[in-house]
């Protein structure tokens, strides 16, 4: 009887091990297939820009021809805009985060002018195009006697714009902190300010940080709009400049696109690592 029970237990253990291994194997196979498919898609994209023409019987397939000499000669000039692009995006996201937090807190205010200021700001910014806002800061500020270097005017425009959108993220973060948390803080004798600082904000920021990373990735690409004013020598400005001058717009833009994509990939992987890190521990 005991012997039988023992075999049965061993069997169930072995069976569990088997199922676990099968699951792990399936996951590995899935990941491998995804990687292979990515590589194939990438190769297809490269082929599309290879300039090779193929004829199969009567059917002719054309691909896009790029001037490799131009690319080699100008890739360095365009690449040196990467730093400016990242710089603009970082400064803008910092400004946007501060504004978003203030706007979200303003929305919670019971003092009418503060509440109005917050909703007015969000409404105005969300109601007009970013492209237009960027021009506004270059054209209107000098009339007020404020002459900012191009970079800072761009950062101001991007920061104000993203701040308005991101205020919703922070509002969600603040409301994710339950009523019970506030009551516990109040019952301990905390003032509203202390409660906000010690209990509500730390939890709200934890909630809002991963989506802020997403906004940063979007910002990297929207920073290209700043080039339109012609005063900020970031990635897009450089690509447009050399492209136009030498009638190789397509090549120049493709170089810029590759750099944007690489930056996005890098920050996305950073972002997903951050998210895994943040989700550890609490709740």
């Amino acid at each position: 009887m005991d012997e039988f029970k023992k075999t049965k237990e061993m069997n169930s253990e072995a069976r569990g091990e088997q199922l676990f291994n099968a699951q792990a194997r399936n996951l590995r196979i899935f990941k491998l297939n995804v990687t292979i498919s990515w590589i194939l898609l990438l190769l297809f994209l490269v082929f599309l820009f290879s300039g090779i023409d193929i004829s199969i019987g009567d059917a002719h397939f054309k691909t896009i021809h790029l001037d490799m000499d131009f690319i080699k000669a100008n890739i360095g000039f365009i690449a040196s805009g990467v730093g400016v692009t990242i710089g603009i995006s970082l400064l803008s996201i910092v400004l946007a985060t501060i504004l978003a937090l203030l706007a979200a807190l303003g929305r919670l205010s019971k003092f009418p002018p503060i509440y109005a200021l917050s909703t007015f700001y969000v409404s105005l910014i969300r109601g007009t195009p970013l492209y237009l806002q960027i021009f506004f800061f270059f054209l209107a500020l000098p009339q007020l006697g404020i002459i900012l270097p191009g970079l800072y005017a761009g950062v101001l425009a991007l920061g104000l714009n993203y701040g308005a959108y991101m205020s919703e993220i922070f509002r969600a973060g603040l409301s994710s902190v339950g009523k019970g948390q506030r009551e516990a803080a109040i019952a301990l004798g905390m003032t509203p300010g202390k409660m906000m600082q010690r209990i509500v904000l730390p939890q709200a920021l934890r909630f809002a940080l991963p989506p802020t990373g997403n906004e940063f990735i979007a910002m990297l690409k929207d920073s290209a709009l700043v080039s339109a004013t012609g005063f900020v020598h970031e990635l897009m400005w450089r690509a447009t400049k050399v492209g136009r001058a030498q009638f190789h717009n397509l090549e120049a833009l493709i170089i810029a696109a590759v750099f944007y994509w690489i930056m996005t990939l890098a920050f996305t992987s950073l972002q997903s690592r951050l998210e895994t890190h943040m989700s550890r521990g609490d709740r």
């Binding site: 339950g178 019970g180 009551e183 516990a184 109040i186 004798g189 939890q203 609490d282 709740r283």
Partner: peptide, 20 residues
């Protein structure tokens, strides 16, 4: 009210511990 709250301690049904 602040003084009142310092004189009382409260325990809630849902615990309301600070998760962070």
């Amino acid at each position: 009210i602040h003084s009142l709250r310092l004189r009382t301690g409260m325990v809630f049904q849902e615990f309301n511990l600070f998760p962070h």
